[in-house]
Simulated assay, not measured.
Amino acid sequence: MKALVAGGNTVLGKYVVRHLIDHGYQTFAMSQQPEQDNPLAIPLAAKDQQLSGKFDVVICCARPVIAPYAQESQSIHAAPLMSDLERFAKPHAAKIFTSGIEVFGCAQEVVADDLCFDPLTAAESEVAALEKAMRAGWTALFVPTLSYGGPDCPIRTAIMQRGSPRIPVLIPASGHYYAAHLDDLAEFHINIAEQNDREPVYFLAERQCYSPEDLADLLVRHGWAEGVTCLSLPSFLKRYGPEVLALETMHVTVPISDAFAPKHHLPKYLAQTRFASVPDHPK
């Protein structure tokens, strides 16, 4: 069985590649920067013709990420990428699009049968690509902004990149975060790829969600941060801009898929994992 992962060197893509290999797939990866290809996967160039129509599973993890706890910030040219991935897929391949439209699509209303997207400016280009992919038979997986796990944990990386041991929080804040461990997200990709009766849309997250204040308190309580810096609306806007403000204040309740049964939970992870200062790769 052959699997192709676009964005195999993104934070989630690394985990998807590793789980595919662990499940016995011959795994290829296609990235924007070939010199940074995932070393576990076989590199594949978009212009390759010999493997057209040869893949049983095609997964797109190459997406822009705009959340404050994310590592990737580069944009992608979604339409050409999706066209290339369609060409590599077998006629009845499992095709999975992992959405980067953060916080479950920035949706005004989130109903699995009738999505209503209200994208942030930074994600506008991906909305069209996602909707086109779903019309073409791709399964959309919405993953939460707050992913975590492994030596290169995105939460830890975000704290390190801030250069401050204190967590900034908008006061008052009306939003909330959903969370999921990277291993749980990656394992779900394989589970869905191996099902014959896939639903068109899945929302993946742990059931408990967190306000920015709750999250900051968790990080401080378990030694991941030294304290909280409370910011007024003008201060927050000046420091982070309107896009991050929109995420910080977004309050969307989503129909988390019953098929997603996470083995990890954020509070337990933070309590049991020592905060380390040197990022690494998942092992």
Rank of each mutant, 00 (worst) to 15 (best):
V57N: 00
N196L: 12
V5C: 05
L40V: 09
K2N: 13
D152R: 11
P168L: 10
I21R: 09
L218C: 10
L81W: 02
V111W: 11
A122N: 11
L115F: 05
H19V: 15
S235F: 05
R207Y: 07
M82Y: 06
V58K: 00
K2L: 15
I190Q: 01
I155D: 01
R63A: 11
V244M: 11
Q26S: 14
R274I: 11
P80N: 01
F188E: 02
V16I: 13
G241F: 06
A6N: 08
K95P: 03
E131H: 12
A259P: 05
L219W: 04
L141K: 03
V17E: 00
P262S: 05
G24S: 12
A62I: 00
M30G: 06
E199C: 13
E194P: 04
A186D: 00
P242H: 11
A45L: 13
E72D: 10
H265C: 13
A193T: 03
H19G: 11
M160H: 13
V57L: 06
I155E: 00
H251K: 14
A6D: 08
R274S: 12
P168T: 10
R162M: 15
T27N: 07
L40W: 08
I101T: 04
P34V: 07
C153N: 10
Q272N: 15
H77K: 13
Q26G: 10
W138L: 07
L231F: 04
A45K: 14
I155Y: 02
G223H: 04
K90D: 03
I101A: 06
R198L: 09
A89V: 07
L81Y: 04
L85D: 00
V254N: 06
H189A: 06
D258R: 15
P262E: 05
